[in-house]
Amino acid sequence: MYPALIAFCLLFLGLIPAFSQHKYMRGTLTQLNVTLPVAKKFKLNTKLESRQIFAEKELNEVATNQFRYERTDLALVLTRKLTVNTTLGGGYLLRLEDREFTHRLIQQFNYVNALDMIILAHRVVTDETFQPGKPAEVRLRYRLGMEKALNGRQIDPKEMYVKFNNEYLGIWSNATTDLEIRAALALGYNSADTNKIELGLEYRVNEFNQSEKAHQLWATIGLFVSI
């Protein structure tokens, strides 16, 4: 497991020079995720996420290496447990960026399966984004998540684990159609099964509809609290 982890980190680091001539964005993605039960089969998830940019470059422009706060998202998603493995949810996201609010409606379905050595999670999301002065945008997302204990077969309290996510997003609006691909690797610590902290890297590529793709590389930190 450890050599694979190191190889993946090196791959991520290798991506930095690889897209230094293109449109890119590098920064930090911080996330606080609080989930609380609201009824027997219902959970409410509150996610506060913000992005800080340390380096960016537009196509045919000079790169800037300056710290800049970009945006903050507040999302509320209510999920209902359908079976022991599946959940269905819906929610709302409010984004504050450049003193403007963006609104997003979210619908999601999850299938989580604990295998002998890993936990596999499938997530399908549709969302609709409404931003002032821009056409409404619809996205269809699929994310495959995998989680594995670094010691033993299951992630017990006070144990570390590794998490890998791969997500594909189809994006449609009146103005454009695009695809975004995300891959994220994180090292997590499960302090008490209700509190987890994850540190990692996330790579995103989009603007497949343009002559040059846009690349993003984020250092991620996530705190997951289940009440």
Binding site: N33, V77, R123, E147, K163, G188, D193, K196, G222, F224
Partner: peptide, 10 residues
Amino acid sequence: IQRNTDNLIY
């Protein structure tokens, strides 16, 4: 007992 998988769902 099922492990908490909220970090894989949200």
